[in-house]
């Protein structure tokens, strides 16, 4: 049984190390609505939230604006990174989908991204960034299930954008809605298999 904690909940009477927590008066409290993991470290993993960039992450972006010197890209975060034209060889236009890598994140949380490829002939879907691990599943079990039943190729960005090519994207869309809503259910992958079998018949 997972323990869900909320901001301000007392986690420990001693100062602990970890993430998603803070110390006050030598006690440890939760910072988020999230799942509590107590191990070597104490972690509160938020259940929902926008994408927080990390160096090395592979993410999917949507070009939203172009000006003389570069592009503004929507990466489902609280800030939209800017890519200079002089740093890339290809030309893009607003509406293009791109695969990027996060090169660095500076002190004011601005990220610098590097465009790896243009993504064409596919559909863009989105989930909360915090639900991406659920969408992928343990050892990619969930994402393999989705690809099997939809017969699509699915690229999952760490930021919560997904690129779906071919097959039946509406099956992927349905599945993503269910995963998002029931992300805390135990054995979700098994239950998803049952659900996908059912809707494939319809």
């Amino acid at each position: 049984m997972k323990t869900i904690v909320v901001p301000g909940d007392l986690i420990s009477d001693k100062p602990e190390n970890g993430s998603g927590i803070y110390q006050k008066d030598n006690k440890t409290y939760s910072k988020y609505v999230g799942v509590l993991y107590k191990g070597e470290d104490t972690q509160v993993v938020p259940l929902h939230g926008k994408y927080t960039p990390r160096e090395g992450d592979m993410i999917i972006g949507l070009v939203v604006q172009e000006d003389m010197f570069g592009y503004i890209v929507d990466v489902k975060s609280y800030h939209m990174p800017y890519v200079h034209k002089r740093s890339i060889k290809t030309e893009f236009k607003p509406g293009d989908l791109i695969l990027c890598q996060v090169i660095s994140v500076n002190e004011i949380k601005y990220m610098i991204i590097d465009i790896q490829a243009k993504l064409e002939d596919g559909i863009l879907f989105g989930v909360s960034a915090k639900k991406v691990p659920r969408v992928i599943g343990k050892h990619r079990s969930m994402i393999n299930l989705l690809e099997k039943y939809s017969e699509s190729k699915i690229l999952v960005g760490a930021n919560g954008y997904l690129f779906v090519k071919g097959g039946k994207p509406n099956i992927v869309k349905d599945a993503l809605e269910v995963i998002s809503k029931y992300s805390q259910t135990e054995n979700l992958t098994e239950k998803m298999e049952g659900y996908l079998k059912k809707i494939k018949v319809e």
Binding site: V6, P7, G8, Y32
Partner: peptide, 11 residues
């Protein structure tokens, strides 16, 4: 605010 996943000291 808590539902949006924002880091908070307390409710």
């Amino acid at each position: 605010l808590a539902d949006a996943g924002l880091p908070m000291k307390d409710l």
